[in-house]
Amino acid sequence: MISECEIENLELVYKKPKTLTETPMHYCPGCGHGVINKVLMEVIDELNIQDKVVGAAPVGCSVFEYRYMDIDMIESPHGRASAVATGVKRVNPDLYVFSYQGDGDLAAIGTSETIHTVNRGENILMLFINNAIYGMTGGQMAPTTLIGQKTSTSPYGRTVKNSGFPINMTELISKLDGAYFVTRQAVHKPNGVRKLKKAIQKSFEHQKENKGTCFIEVISNCPAGWGMTPIKSNEWLEENLIKMYPLGDIKVPK
């Protein structure tokens, strides 16, 4: 591993954000979580809000994200990160607060908390990482799993008859009056990463204005859970997930 000090400042074009810790990440090779964690920390660095930010971590693949983020965090029960974040924000209105949840956490077990947090227009950023599968528990069907997609609990492919339709949480959220800024991004390409970074930046800036909830869905991959190489998983993401969950801003401040 080359550390920063080995490269002279003149040549340094890219570095790890200082709020990202030295702890090696547990995420599988090719997984999007690492990129999203890093981008989030880059924004916190650039806005210089390390001492004013608290994050609510979920249960799922990102359960250990507090290891990588050099900020104060609370590890929440499964599905309740937005309620935990609400609690922090309501008694500390000057803090920047975010929740970070996967599809099972936010769109299955935590659906009620998700909808009501946004409906109240809590002044927090909600990050929703959608990879259409339960990664942490070993690849079970998620609420966002596509029709026909094979998982360990839909081994013959998800059927409408048995499991209903993939839920489109972000479009649903955008209809709520409490939602201020709603967007869907992906991190399988560099320009997507840049767009996500801008969206996170904007969301923290909006938080100062007390205008309502900022909600960012990030379409991500799960090479291990999907049984694909990282490259193949990015292709599959582009061909299938993004068709179902199109990228772009869904609700922007007027």
Partner: peptide, 17 residues
């Protein structure tokens, strides 16, 4: 809150701060 589940988790977050 929208439920007792949400309420106790708000308490969790606020107490954690």
């Amino acid at each position: 809150a929208e439920s007792e589940i949400a309420a106790i988790n708000m308490v969790f977050g606020a107490a954690g701060s």
